[in-house]
Amino acid sequence: MSQDKPNYPIMGENNPLHNSVYGPPKIDAFGMPPPNYSQGPGAPPYAAPGPYTQPGYEQPPAPGFGPSPYPQGPYVQGPYVQGPYVQGPYPQSPYQQGPGQPAFGVDPNASVESPGYHGGDGPPSYDGNDEFVNFGWEDKSIRRAFIRKVFMVLTVQLLITFSFVAIFTFVTDVKVFVRRNKWTYYVSYVVFFVSLIVLSCCGEFRRKHPWNLVALSILTLSLSYMVGMIASFHNTDAVIMAVGITAVVCFTVVIFSMQSKYDFTSCYGVLFVCMIVLLLASILCIFIQNKILHIVYASLGALLFTCFLAVDTQLLLGNKKLSISPEEYVFAALNLYTDIINIFLYILALVGHTKE
């Protein structure tokens, strides 16, 4: 069998079939005829090789660019500008801040120390604690109104208590009655203890008006009866002296706590441990009847609750590490009231033992 070359029409050859069907070879946009695939691998290229030894076609440079050493493809460039690209309506560099979101109400040019940010005074972190919080006071009028309300409630409580003390001290019939009926003291102590537990542990209850004021009134009346009954067992001079000393000490501590830059609220845990130690010492004083031991115990108790008064005053002001929420005006008044009453009782015990 002879292997002859097939007589099929080949692209690029001058044969009548090709010319009649496809027409004569056309010249493309680059001025070069289409490739002839019948040529062998050793055929010369269609154009002179470029600087990188790759065949290519010479084209005019695109607008905005210089002559390129790279070979251009056979495709016609589109109508889009190739470069440099036109900048959009927004500046690309440097980037600028857009307008702030009106929903947040934050000035984008404000510093991080401004009250709108969580800096400076510190963030409000409740941490599951309703009494002691870090409160950022953007509106100081709320704090002033809170302080006025607390001191108003405290003033009423102290007036009721020292009215009981005056009646139980200067009215002889009342003094004789309470001395003969000591069971009333234990009843008032139970009522005071129950109301104290309710106001201290039930946060929702002490924020519910008017039941919080009712419970605070019951606590104030029961504690006033207890203090008046204790004062009835002391001399009138000792009671008057204890009231005067208590007023001077409390006023001085409150003013000092308001003006001092030292943070007493950071010592709250230490004072709580000292109170537990003082409670154990009181149990010891029950079994050991020693005048010197009682004087030392009364002195330490007055000193400890003076420190508690300083801490609770700064908690009320809210300008230190810990503060009380403005919703807790009943709890704040209760803290200050119990501190002052304990200072009075310890000073009364100290003065009474020194006069014996």
Rank of each mutant, 00 (worst) to 15 (best):
I167R: 01
E138T: 14
P99R: 00
P326G: 01
P63I: 00
E138R: 14
P6D: 10
L279A: 10
Y95A: 11
N7G: 05
P63V: 02
L317S: 08
P102N: 06
F162M: 06
S282P: 06
I147P: 11
C202H: 09
S257H: 02
F162Q: 04
L158N: 04
R143M: 13
F104L: 06
S299V: 00
G136F: 11
K321H: 15
T265M: 07
Y95L: 10
S68L: 15
D121R: 15
C250E: 08
A298V: 00
C274R: 02
A302K: 00
G73S: 04
D127N: 11
L271E: 00
L350G: 12
F135A: 07
I10K: 14
P102Y: 05
A215Q: 03
V178I: 05
G64I: 02
S38K: 05
G100N: 06
I341L: 14
F287G: 12
G120H: 03
N212K: 06
I142R: 04
A238Y: 04
V190K: 07
F256D: 09
Q82I: 03
Y185M: 08
D312T: 12
V174W: 09
V194W: 01
P33V: 04
L334M: 10
F104K: 01
Y57H: 14
A281E: 10
G100W: 03
